[in-house]
């Protein structure tokens, strides 16, 4: 069993390295990201589209990598994982963040609420002052993120939404009406 696990681990780490088959490189944050059904695999996969600068600029690969490092450090230092899930792992007090970048709430609720012109800016604004933009009774606390930290987190969430997770979460954002 351990031998099999070793082989699978080598392969899995390769497939999931940034730039591997299922995990995009960090500079994917410069592109548009979607989520659409792949009929051959039978579930939804991320679709990487045309260029779409983040915070009005394009990041080189080293810059994007630095940004991701910071984003991950913020996520760990504030223990986001003890309220939220990433790829469904973590805690369940807040919503799953796997596809947060693609959440319709940004354009429907938070962009109007914050007055931000882009999704990315709305996210930064929300993450820096969540107590000012609640959507319901259960609120996110203010975790004292600097602007740079909040931007790094947003970039991180954008990158995460481009990871091929074998179809989790299923039909994200496509609400089926009851019955």
């Amino acid at each position: 069993m351990l031998v099999v696990l070793t082989f699978l681990t080598v392969d899995s780490l390769n497939v999931t390295r940034a730039g591997g088959i299922q995990v995009p490189n960090y500079d994917v944050i410069n592109q548009e990201i979607g989520y659409a059904n792949d009929w051959s695999r039978g579930f939804e996969v991320p679709v990487i589209g045309a260029s779409e600068p983040l915070f009005g600029r394009t990041y080189s690969l080293p810059e994007a990598t630095e940004l991701m490092k910071l984003g991950k450090a913020v996520i760990q230092s504030r223990a986001c994982m003890d309220c939220h899930t990433f790829f469904g792992n973590g805690a369940y007090y807040g919503p799953d963040l796997t596809k947060s970048w693609l959440d319709p709430a940004w354009s429907q609720i938070w962009m109007p609420m914050t007055g931000a012109a882009t999704r990315g800016d709305a996210m930064v604004e929300f993450l820096m002052h969540p107590e000012q933009y609640p959507t319901w009774t259960r609120q996110m606390p203010n975790l004292h993120l600097t602007r740079a930290e909040a931007q790094a987190v947003v970039a991180y969430l954008k990158w995460m939404s481009a990871v091929d997770t074998n179809g989790f979460p299923a039909h994200f954002g496509r609400i089926q009406t009851q019955n």
Binding site: M1, L2, V4, L5, L8, D11, S12, V15, T16, I21, Q22, V23, R41, F87, G88, N89, T98, V163, D164, T165, N166, G167, F168
Partner: peptide, 20 residues
């Protein structure tokens, strides 16, 4: 040991983990 795979369904790891 290979039951570990039930945590590797959705984290970006290859699809064969679903079966294993």
């Amino acid at each position: 040991i290979l039951g570990l795979g039930h945590h590797y369904f959705w984290i970006g790891t290859p699809q064969y983990w679903l079966g294993i």
